[in-house]
Amino acid sequence: MRIGYFCTFTPKELIHSAGFLPFRIFATRKPISLASAYIQSYACSQVRGALEVALSDEFHGFVFTRSCDTLMRLTDILEFLGKRVYNIEFPTKIGNVDYYVYELRDFCKTLESWGGEISFERVIESLALYRELEEKLKKLFEVRADYEIAIKVQQIDVSGAIKLVEKKIEEAKKEEKPKILVTGSVCPYPEIYEIFTKAGFAIKDDLCTGRRFFEFNYPNFEPHDLDSALRFLAEKYFSKAPCPTKHYPNDYRFDYLLRLAEDCEAVVFLLVKFCEPHFFDFPQLREKLEEMGKKVALIELEFPVASTEQIRTRVEALKEVIG
């Protein structure tokens, strides 16, 4: 049974351990029609597109984590439409692990009420599987960024996903190309990434459909019971690659991004129109990146992407400037 989720902060390990398939919902290529009756046109197209999928496909339930205001309301909208939903109150301010452990405990109870089974052994097993997947994805991306795989693994069972990535690692060859940092929220269209590689760039990313799905720092302890497994999970997600929907001490996300950009020739902000958290960060980040001598470009996306031509022109122009 598929449980739909939207945000990379979702503890998919728990959904998996309870016996469900955590299935990340992205905007599809289908034009948005059903969703327009339930949410305004100034909601981002990722949310409108995801709502379209949620309304037309089969799901056992939907899990949200507090991230942006639009997703927060989408939870309610889906519930009003008769769907089974749950919202995990992931803190906006990163810091209080104890609080989040409580939230995860409540989430376990919800999964049980949805027909799932929660046990320490199974949680540990899922933790290990997802860690293996994440580490392998990291390894693959060190050689070659493969977004088709990064997107696919979020919609299939984790064991199959690991095998798929292993195969890709064997095939992957490193290419020496100038690096470009692509930062933003989601882009479920593999052909858009190809525009960058075809223009002669090697992509390094800071995206929900890339690194933010698999880059974690793992806590330094072995869980010995369910509660400590939840603590492990909380700490793991607190130290995930940062997202602009969260508030970090000492402006951590800015530092993180500037560090990521260090060995890149250029930075592209690949932003979904109406995505407030990213658009708020953009001007000040651009300023700092330009101070570092980086070329910066902003590409605004709306799903479904009608034509990639305009994006191609922008990326090629950027490549020319860099030489």
Partner: peptide, 17 residues
């Protein structure tokens, strides 16, 4: 329906009903 305030505006279609 206020373009500037998502948490206030999204859901209005459902509330209406």
């Amino acid at each position: 329906s206020n373009r500037s305030c998502k948490p206030y505006s999204f859901g209005q279609y459902e509330i209406q009903k």
